[in-house]
Amino acid sequence: MKTFPSKTLSAVMLCTLGLAPAARAADVNNWPIKYTTGDGTEWALYGNYQYDWMDVRHSDTIEDSHTNRRKEFGFTAKKKGEWDALVYFDFQSRQWLDVYWRMETKWLFGQDYGKLRFGYSKLPVGFEGVTSARNDSFVEIALPLQAIYETRRTGVDWAYERPTYLVNVGYYFGEDLQGDNDGTTVAARAAWTPLKQEGEVVHLGLSASIENPDGTTDGRGVYHSPSARWRSRPEVGLTTVRLIDSGSLTHVDSNRRLGFEGLWIHGPLSFQGEYLQAQTKRTDGLADYTADGYYVFGSYVLTGESRPYTAGNVANIKPRGPWGAVELLLRYSALDLDDGKVRGGREHDLTFGANWYLTQHFKFQANYVKAHSTHLGKRQDPDVFELRAQVYF
């Protein structure tokens, strides 16, 4: 078993102990990362750095690890009431994240019909999926999101929000910015929000999408039919091991995703959950395939703050006291990849979490994951302890 390097641990401890008094002595939330030009355009740096460490027990396939999880950096530009833009890249995974330009329809047409966005962005099916990685309540997203969420594509989408509801519709016609995942996707999300104010939120949503992947032709001129694969890590990010995996499904006509989501925030207490289903429609007489899963979690902020909510999404807690905010969490998730002759396996995880929001820019997380999986007759039940130190702005 690998041990947590003493130099890294010392650095984290010094950072923690040093920043807490600073939070009392100065406004550490007011970072000089914004600049406004004479015409009112606001430019700002945008970043998220995460360092993870994990200790694994009862597993012969997943190894202990510690390294950078994310090194995301970019910039935003915004002209209030008119438009905003974001360019964002992860230097750890070497992948583009959001790259888009979004416009207010009131600026374009003189009447508010919502917002139009062009570029590369997340698809709307999956509540935890559309949540920014900088705002994740747990160290890693739940099992069904890892398997089913479609991540980002190039296209155009429209978002319309009113006090008691919101709608988001998009058409994505381009591959991702890494040059993969050719094809098209039509996606939509709608939510009813009868209660939407600080510390008091009710959100009930429905989302769906139809993806039509394209086949590829290799350098030898051989055509490969569209394929799909559904799999999930055991809610840990520092491993490539998947305990359950459908394997590659060939001759795919379409992938259809469906999601139901819910959120309730009442002061420091909140509950969140969703159900996700993916259907792969296949050609050449091959049987269709269905995968599904769900999660539910509860959160309680010991220091009294509430989870922020805006535009159909949640964000990091903003601490009120000099020593930050402390949050305790419990999540149960399940994923079923067995269907017909495809025996992808089944898994359910129980995760205990604790978050310390030291300031609006520093966050520390601890998770204990108890995983249970069965795949092709083999059972694996690893225990994983995860720690994360995060800086975001």
Rank of each mutant, 00 (worst) to 15 (best):
D339P: 11
R134P: 01
D288Q: 06
A287Y: 12
N29W: 02
E150K: 14
S270M: 03
A187V: 02
K2I: 09
L387N: 07
T217G: 01
N212A: 13
Y295W: 03
H203C: 01
T310W: 10
S246I: 01
E347D: 06
H203F: 14
P226F: 07
G81T: 01
G219E: 06
L243Q: 08
E161R: 15
W230A: 11
A22I: 10
D60Y: 11
D381V: 05
G247E: 05
G285R: 06
V252L: 03
E274P: 09
D98G: 00
G179E: 06
E140V: 02
A354I: 10
F118L: 07
N135Y: 15
T193Y: 03
E200Y: 05
L358M: 13
H58N: 15
H348T: 08
Q146W: 02
E347T: 09
R343L: 14
L376F: 11
Y357L: 04
L328P: 09
K281G: 13
D214A: 15
W230K: 12
A371D: 15
G119N: 02
G273A: 00
T185V: 08
R134H: 10
N313C: 09
A287K: 10
Y35R: 10
A287S: 05
F364R: 04
T16L: 15
L335E: 07
Y300F: 11
T351L: 13
L238R: 10
A366S: 14
L123I: 05
H58L: 12
L45D: 10
D112S: 11
G321F: 14
L358A: 05
F138C: 09
M54D: 07
N212E: 13
G267C: 05
R70A: 15
Q146R: 15
P382H: 04
G247I: 08
R331N: 08
D90Q: 09
R379T: 12
F138M: 11
R229V: 13
E274K: 03
Y113V: 00
Q279V: 13
F127I: 10
A208D: 04
T239D: 12
Y223P: 04
L204R: 02
W323R: 09
D339H: 05
R307D: 03
V222R: 15
E161F: 10
K122M: 10
F75E: 00
G312W: 04
V236Q: 10
V369W: 04
G321E: 11
S137M: 14
N30K: 13
F109K: 02
Y172P: 00
R331L: 06
V236F: 09
D245C: 08
P234W: 02
S227D: 11
A20V: 14
Y332W: 15
W158G: 07
R320W: 13
S227T: 11
Y295T: 12
L286S: 08
Y368H: 15
D284E: 12
V56C: 05
F75G: 02
L195A: 10
L376D: 14
L286E: 14
F138K: 06
L328H: 06
L19S: 12
V169P: 08
V125R: 05
T76Y: 03
Y300N: 07
S137H: 14
W43D: 00
Y289L: 04
T359A: 09
V12K: 10
A315P: 15
F393T: 09
V156N: 00
T164E: 11
V167E: 04
M54Y: 07
T303E: 13
Y294V: 00
S121H: 12
D288S: 07
T374W: 13
Y223L: 03
Y49H: 14
N316K: 00
G215A: 01
K80T: 14
